[in-house]
Amino acid sequence: MDLNRLPNDKKLQLCRWYFKVGCIFLPFAWAVNAVWFFKEAFVKPPFEEQKQIKKYVLMSAVGAAVWTCALITWVTVFQLNRVSWGATGDMLSFIVPLGRA
């Protein structure tokens, strides 16, 4: 979809919609939202809805960043400790590797 062809009120609607979707544990939607509407929020000359778009873009960006940090931390901790956690580690694994600890 080409944002340039969209009227400004539709842009705001879309941006808000993406933010809301991201709220249901879909950080990737937030990340897309932040990237997609970055230009609209910060680069384009001011227009009426820009302030609100800016707000949603910022919140989406921060949310996505927090999620990323949390996921990276968890993956690191899990990968380093899966073996030592024993039964819990196996239970948390979706695919248990064959032939090794």
Binding site: A87, D90, M91, S93, F94, I95, L98, R100, A101
Partner: peptide, 25 residues
Amino acid sequence: SFMFAAVNSEVCLRRSTTSALLTPT
């Protein structure tokens, strides 16, 4: 001669009984 099991009997039996969603191996 690749072997599926590892570590010890406790671990391998546990992994054999755990019915993981994708790999009930």
